[in-house]
Design a protein around this nucleic acid. Structure first.
Lengths: 343, 343
DNA sequence: GTTTCTTATGTTAGCGCTAACAATGTAGCC
DNA sequence: GGCTACATTGTTAGCGCTAACATAAGAAAC
C-alpha cells in the first residue's frame, strides 16, 4: 500500500501525487476532453504508482448508475439456459456492464418476483429474465417495475421487449423434414404444457402437419427429462402405425431412442426420430440424432443489446414499441431419420 | 411515486412521513435494538407507503461493504460448472450475498486475471474462482489480490482456500470396480493434460491399478468432448486385450460407447466402460452408463460458506490455515460394466 | 432531591465521487 | 490596449447513507 495510512488510495491521494485537483483526476478517468496531454500522463502515472481504483459505490451514488444488469436464470440441467447465460455474460462485459445473477430452483411467478426484488436491492439498472413459462412472462408484464426488462425465451409476449428462438419455425422444420421423407404423419413427444418452448414446438409441429394435410395425432407430454422420453417412447413403440417421432428436446429423444431400441424397433429403419436443442451429446447418440439447433449465444447477445438500448433510451426520449427479436432455428440432419419404407 | 418531486423516495422522505429523524429510519432498517416498537411500526408503515428502498450505493460507500461476491466461471458445455454455479447462487442468496458472475471462454491465467480485475471494479468483497487448470490455480496464489479467494475444483492448491470433489477417490472407485469384476487391467481415456480434474482421475486410476498389482497401460488423452472419446475408443476397440475402459467424463464415454458399438464390440459383454460426472443423460446411454457422481450443489454451497467465513474473519482476527474441503465422489453402477469373461 | 444509568431519539460529519460553477490563462480580433 | 472566446484547472456542494456523538427523558439508586 503506497498510501501512508495503509488504507487504499482515493482520488485525493492520486491528485496530491500528480499535483492536481481531485477533479482533474476524475476528468482523466472519465475521458473528458479538456485535459492537457501532459497532465493526463502525470495523473495516469500517479494512478498506476498507487494502484488506485475508483470506488464504484461513490461513483454510483452520484451518477445514479450502477452499471449492473440483473439476470434471473433458473437452476437446470437443461443445456439452453446455461448457454444463454454464457452469451449474456460475454455481451454484457463487452458493453461494460456487470452481471448480477440469481438462479432459481423453481420457475414460478412468485420466485421470479422475489428474485427481482432481491436484485432491486442491489440497484440493478435493468433485468434480463429467462422466462420459459407463460405464467412467468405474464407476471413480468403485470409487475410494476420501473426498470427495463427483457424477457428471454419468452415466446410471444406482445407488450414486453423479448428475445427468443423461433420455436415454431424450428418445429415446423423438423416435422416438414419427416414428412418430406415420406412419412404419412409425425407423432410428437412434447414438453410440459406450461412451458412456452413446449407450446411453440407443438404449434410448429401441428402447423406443418396441417399444411401437408397429414393427420394430427394426440401429442404426448413429457417433462424434458430422459426418463419421460423413455416412458412415452415405449408407448409409441407398441403402435405399428408410428413411423416418425418429433421429440421436443434431445434429452427426451435420448430416452425415446433407448426405449425404441429395447422394444426391437430400429431407428431409423423402422422409425425416424428428430430432437430439439442439438446438445453436444446428440451427435453421438445411437444413432446420431437429427435435431434442431438453436443459437443460444446469439440469444444472449441480442438480449443484452436490447436491454442496453432500453437503458440508454431511458435517458432520452420515450421509447418506441418494445422490440422483439426472433432468432431462426436450424435443422441438423444426422442418422436418426430415413425415408419411410412400407412395412 | 408518492414523493412530491417524482424522484424515488429517500430515507429523509420516510423520516418526514413517520415524523422521526432519518437516523431512526436507518436504525429500523438495520434492526438496531433501541427503537420503540411503536416508532418501528410507524417507520415500517411509511416505508411501505412510499415504496422506499434503501440506496445500496450510499450504504456501501459508508459501510465499505458491497455484499457482492465475484464469481469467475467459464463458458462451457460441461455439466459440472453449470451445476456448481447454481449451487453457489443458491448458497449466496441464502447468506444474503449478491453474485456477480464473469464467464470466460478460455481458461488461461491471463483471462482469469482480467476477469478478476473487472470484478474488482465493482468492489466485490471476495472471489470464487472455478479453476480447473493447474496454471490458473497457480496464478491465483501468485496474484496480489487483497480480497479473499476460494478456488473451486482446483485439485490440490496447498496455500489457497479450496473446495473440490475427490477426483482421485472417484477414479479409484471406478477402477477398483472394474478390477473387482475380474478385469486384468483397466485402460484409461483421460482428459486434457493441463486440467486438474483430468490429473486427479489419472492418479486415482493409476493408484487403484498399482494397489491391485495390475499392469498400467499408457492413458490416452482426449479433450472432454464426445468426439475425442469416439476417436480414442476406436483405437482401443481394435485391441483385443482391452476389456475394461475408464473414461474421464461421461461425454467422452458416450463417444467411446458409440465407436465400440460401431466396431462390433459389445458393452458390457466384451468390454466394460465407466464414465465420470453422472450427467442426466448417462442413465439413458446405450447401455446405461456406470459412472462416478459428483455433488456439485454441495461444492457450490461449501465454497460460499468458506468464502463467507473468510469475509467475516477478515473483520476479526488473523485467519488460520486455509481450509480445504474435499467432497467425496460416489460410484453409480449401471449396465455398462460386467464380469470379465475369457474370450 | 440529586446523581447515575439506561433507553430512545436527534444532530452532525463524512464516506469518495461527479456536476456545476468559478477562476485562471492564452489566444485572437478589432 | 480591451474585449471576447475558449481551453484548462480548481472550488464547492451534495448524492443517500451510517457512525459517532449529543441530547432528552424516564427509571433506579442513594
Amino acid at each position: 500500500m503506497p498510501v501512508p495510512n495503509g488504507r487504499s488510495p482515493v482520488m485525493a491521494d492520486v491528485a496530491r501525487l500528480a499535483g492536481v485537483s481531485h477533479q482533474t483526476v476524475s476528468r482523466v478517468l472519465n475521458g473528458h476532453p479538456n485535459v492537457r496531454t501532459e497532465t493526463q500522463a502525470r495523473v495516469q502515472a500517479a494512478i498506476e504508482e498507487l494502484g488506485y481504483r475508483r470506488n464504484s459505490s461513490a461513483r454510483a451514488l452520484v451518477t445514479r448508475r450502477t452499471g449492473v444488469i440483473g439476470v434471473v436464470s433458473f437452476d437446470t440441467t437443461h443445456y439452453g439456459p446455461a448457454q444463454t447465460l454464457a452469451g449474456i455474460g460475454r455481451a454484457a462485459r463487452a458493453s461494460g456492464y456487470f452481471l448480477s445473477v440469481v438462479t432459481l430452483q423453481t420457475v414460478t411467478r412468485k420466485a421470479v418476483r422475489e428474485a427481482m426484488d432481491y436484485l432491486a436491492q442491489q440497484s440493478v439498472e435493468g433485468y434480463i429474465v429467462i422466462a420459459p413459462k407463460r405464467a412467468v412472462v405474464e407476471g413480468l408484464a403485470d409487475q410494476s417495475v420501473d426498470r427495463p426488462i427483457v424477457a428471454v425465451e419468452g415466446g410471444e409476449a406482445p407488450d414486453l421487449p423479448m428475445v427468443c428462438v423461433d420455436q415454431v419455425g424450428g418445429a415446423y422444420l423438423a416435422t416438414r423434414h419427416l414428412l418430406d421423407l415420406g412419412h404419412r404423419t409425425v407423432h410428437h413427444i412434447a414438453g410440459p404444457r406450461d412451458w412456452l418452448e413446449a407450446e411453440g414446438r407443438v404449434e410448429g409441429w401441428r402447423q406443418a402437419l396441417a399444411d401437408a394435410g397429414a393427420p394430427v395425432p394426440e401429442p404426448l407430454c413429457g417433462d424434458w427429462k430422459p426418463r419421460s422420453g423413455y416412458d412415452l417412447g415405449g408407448r409409441l413403440a407398441r403402435d405399428p402405425d408410428v413411423t416418425a417421432i418429433f421429440v421436443a428436446n434431445d434429452q427426451m429423444a435420448l430416452g425415446t431412442l433407448r426405449s425404441l431400441g429395447e422394444s426391437g424397433v430400429r431407428v431409423p429403419e423402422d422409425v425416424s426420430v428428430v430432437g430439439f436443442d442439438d446438445i453436444p451429446e446428440a451427435e453421438f447418440f445411437t444413432p446420431p440424432l437429427t435435431t434442431v439447433s438453436q443459437d443460444f449465444s446469439e440469444v444472449g447477445q441480442r438480449s443484452i443489446r436490447l436491454l442496453v438500448e432500453l437503458l440508454e433510451a431511458a435517458d432520452g426520449d420515450g421509447s418506441a414499441a418494445p422490440a422483439q427479436h426472433v432468432i431462426p432455428a436450424r435443422l441438423v440432419t444426422r442418422k436418426s431419420t430415413a425415408m419411410y419404407r412400407r412395412a
